[in-house]
Design a protein around this nucleic acid. Structure first.
Lengths: 186, 186
DNA sequence: ATAATTTCTTGATAAATGTCAAGAAGAAAT
DNA sequence: ATTTCTTCTTGACATTTATCAAGAAATTAT
């Protein structure tokens, strides 16, 4: 899993003042399994760092439920287009297991960026990381067969296959549940 | 086209000192059509802002030439995984037309970030922008038919269809040249 | 201008994947 | 434990897209 926060915590915790400012902003929250953390059609004001549990981002394409992102321990989750652009999101966020998270609001994050260049830097490095991840995901989707996409994901995030229902992984991989089932059954 | 630089130039040019520091770093360059700006297997040290012309990022997947990105006027181009992570890239950059660019090196950009928080902020905002663009691209690829992918691109970047050869657009859209040709012929 | 090379189109066929349907298996509720 | 609901599997079939091949059109080089 993405250990970006572990690897870069030193930036945030470099001095007691930096560490304190950061920790003050984070709010611990729990969400029960199947609850919705963010609903489509609203502006997303929160970003969560997941302490335990797993969650997904999804939307409806002509009544079909499409998962476009999973996040588990150490990873962050938000509907990032809405969070960044301050506009209504078409995406929902759902807890797939009981979830424990640290939450920061958009406003608090902006204030943090304002308050000290170190945070600004942290924000830039964070975006670099998730950008790289996304480039890799496009690479995995473009010009690979369903079989290959299945194998790539199994290689990279095998824990999903244990923890998440097949239909969500199927849509994430851009295939039907039937095709997913046939590939899985070798 | 992406007018991120136009929209956010004010950050960079806020004071004469900021503007001067930025301009000093940029080097004007020309590349003839068909030239390679960056070759796979090497570390990419440069980012280009395109003044005129069009370029592509591509790589070889089992001998097949796959285009994964286009950039034209006002847009930036680099092999960003390599540029950020300082590792060898599997991607190449090619000029599809005679190209005029402003180039900044990785080191100069890092120095710029070091030198003033305003630049750090600019870097963060830039990454936010290209991240959003990439989310949209995944959305366009995932669970759309070849016909739909064609139509989405025609809607968003019709200029590509005039300026770029069909085979490059085809691989960018994740389909064969034959399928592309048949879709185009209605 | 002509030749050589590359790109584009079109047809025939094969392979991959989606759709629909029905039953099995699993999970959740009573 | 039984019932109910959802998810998963499997088969038959339809559709989409890839592959291979050949010729046309366009581009580049001589």
């Amino acid at each position: 899993m993405n250990s970006f926060f572990e690897n870069n915590a030193s930036i945030l915790l470099e001095t007691p003042e930096l560490a304190e400012a950061f920790q003050k902003m984070m709010r611990f929250q729990k969400f029960p399994k199947n609850s919705i953390l963010h609903e489509a059609g609203t502006i997303c004001n929160e970003m969560h760092i997941i302490m335990s549990g797993i969650s997904r981002v999804f939307y409806y394409k002509e009544d079909k439920d499409i998962t476009c992102h999973f996040a588990a321990e150490q990873e962050t989750i938000t509907t990032i287009d809405s969070f960044i652009q301050r506009k209504k999101s078409k995406y929902n966020i759902e807890a797939l297991e009981d979830l424990e998270v640290l939450t920061i609001t958009h406003q608090d994050l902006e204030d943090l960026f304002e308050s000290h260049p170190k945070y600004e830097r942290f924000g830039r490095l964070f975006l670099q990381q998730i950008y790289i991840d996304l480039v890799e995901r496009i690479d995995d989707l473009q010009l690979h067969t369903a079989q290959e996409r299945y194998e790539i994901l199994l290689e990279k995030k095998s824990y999903l296959f244990q923890r998440v229902s097949a239909k969500h992984i199927a849509s994430f991989l851009g295939m039907t549940p039937e095709t997913f089932s046939r590939i899985r059954g070798k």
